[in-house]
Design a protein around this nucleic acid. Structure first.
Length: 489
DNA sequence: CCCGGAATCT
DNA sequence: AGATTCCGGG
């Protein structure tokens, strides 16, 4: 409280009246402000956040295996983290300690032999946020799950970041530079929503395939298992089903209050996946282009949200599995218990998929103008120049109470040492590579996964671009993971 | 760098 | 609980 960090501000979403705490991260993963105790963003969220922002590609980026990322600039990451947490004395050593802290939780593990390289266990990450998700139901997760032969290796049974990104995709044009600390601006205007609706007839204002989250329908216990702060609740009937879609009033498909995102400064910045369909120039935030991000994100409008009704085509046409799942929700427990889901692939739901495969891979980064403006770019600057940080918007620590630390000063603009540490993957990142975790390393498809038949192959609506064909992407990705799996064996 | 124990803080 | 801080050790 004493720390009026940017993060604090950002983590305080304009919670609409309809908002209930029902949709939030599990407690251990994220404490919304309303909840007692720590409300700070967690490190791994922050990491994901950074990874997601194109402007931080120079600092941290996906690299190597699925889920693997490299901290290209440890000091910078630490600095950003320190800023976020109002810990001026944060450094990589401490940060890495905190990362190590995740090993036990199996959210992260270290890629041995590669400095500054860690790997997300996306299965865990997903589970954390979608604890009820039956891994057996997701081709991605399933394939990934087989990765380790179902063994309970503490190591990776990672869901591909790709899969994760299908859930929480990084906006291909994230180059518009919503800053990590800019939460408000660039909210998808009505235009954007409209467009999306237009693009997806099934989402059309006339027939919004959305149903109210349980929390909206009535009170339910605040069970972490029900928390979906990333905005998309796979367990919502409307999420997966084309049927039984209670209609919302026109225009209410993306009501900001419907899926307000508590992770305001974090994953909430994840854009609507469909926004990648927006024609260039349309998007609300497009104006930012090269400005290198916003200066302050209080546009007053709603923050960008992730309201993802997964693409229905990739879902079972029926509601069945979910229908079966949902009633059992209450019995599920939280946290680690959900790890079981990983191994308990067995009989579970079938082919309900995650509604992923939005074909992001086919979309250009379109990050439009300006090229990216990695914070590390300023490494060419001078250390003593406090201004050099201003372009980051993150660096304003004036709000940071220095009660904790008697020394108020952050190591402001760090000494740019572009040549200092090895900058991995600097060249390769032409466009999309920076946005998506590397897929290129994957071997070519080998053979269809036997379970492929479980994947709904419903053809996409005609209006859908080919790249969005879920049947294609799903299968393809399935193959990818499959072949990857083979490669590992 | 990386690891993990321990004390401490919030 | 989730860090943060410190630290000895590899």
């Amino acid at each position: 409280m004493d720390c009026n960090c940017v993060s604090d501000l950002l983590l305080t979403p304009p919670v609409p009246a309809l908002w209930t705490p029902g949709f939030a991260f599990p407690d251990w993963a994220y404490k919304p402000e309303s909840s007692p105790g720590s409300r700070q963003i967690q490190l791994w969220h922050f990491i994901l956040e950074l990874l997601q922002k194109e402007e931080y590609q120079g600092v941290i980026a996906w690299q190597g295996d699925y889920g693997e990322f490299v901290i290209k600039d440890p000091d910078e990451v630490a600095r950003l983290w320190g800023i976020r947490k109002c810990k001026p004395h944060m450094n990589y050593d401490k940060l890495s300690r905190a990362l190590r802290y995740y090993y036990n939780k199996r959210i992260l593990h270290k890629t041995k032999g590669k400095r500054f390289t860690y790997k997300f266990n996306f299965s865990k990450v997903v589970l954390v946020n979608y604890p009820l998700l039956d891994m057996a139901s997701s081709p991605f997760l399933l394939a990934q799950n087989h990765f380790n032969g179902g063994a309970a290796t503490p190591d990776c049974s990672p869901v591909t970041p790709e899969a994760l990104q299908s859930l929480f995709p990084r906006l291909p044009d994230s180059g518009r530079g919503t800053s990590l600390f800019d939460r408000g601006a660039g909210a998808p205007g009505p235009e954007g929503d409209k467009l999306r609706l237009d693009t997806f007839p099934f989402l059309g204002s006339g027939t919004p395939c959305y149903s109210k989250p349980p929390s909206m329908l009535g009170p339910y216990p605040r069970n972490p298992a029900f928390d979906y702060s990333w905005g998309f609740n796979p367990y919502l009937p409307g999420a997966f089903s084309l049927n039984n879609c209670p209609k919302l009033p026109p225009g209410s498909l993306y009501p900001s209050h419907f899926y307000p995102n508590p992770l305001q400064s974090g994953l909430s910045q994840l854009p609507h996946p469909f926004s990648s369909l927006l024609p260039p120039g349309d998007t609300a935030g497009a104006e930012r282009g090269q400005s290198g991000g916003t200066t302050n994100g209080s546009a007053g409008s709603q923050p960008p949200r992730l309201c993802i009704p997964p693409y229905p085509g990739s879902l079972l046409q029926g509601r069945t599995e979910l229908g079966n799942l949902v009633p059992g929700l209450g019995e599920r427990e939280r946290g680690e218990a959900n790890n079981n889901v990983l191994g308990s692939g067995g009989g579970g739901g079938i082919g309900m998929g995650l509604g992923l495969g939005l074909g992001l891979g086919g979309l250009g980064l379109g990050t439009g103008g300006g090229g990216r403006q990695s914070p590390s770019d300023r490494r060419g600057g001078v250390k003593q120049d406090p201004e050099s940080d201003s372009e980051l918007e993150i660096t304003d620590l004036s709000d940071c109470s220095s009660e904790n630390e008697n020394e108020p000063d952050f190591p402001l603009a760090k000494e740019p040492r572009l040549g200092g540490r090895p900058h991995v993957l600097e060249a390769k990142t032409g466009g999309l590579a920076g946005t998506l975790p590397p897929l290129s390393s994957l071997p070519p498809p080998v053979s269809p996964h036997p379970l492929k038949s479980l994947v709904p192959l419903t053809p996409p609506p005609p209006s859908l671009p080919p790249s969005l064909s879920p049947s294609l992407t799903l299968v393809d990705r399935h193959r990818e993971t499959d072949s990857l799996k083979l490669a590992h064996s």
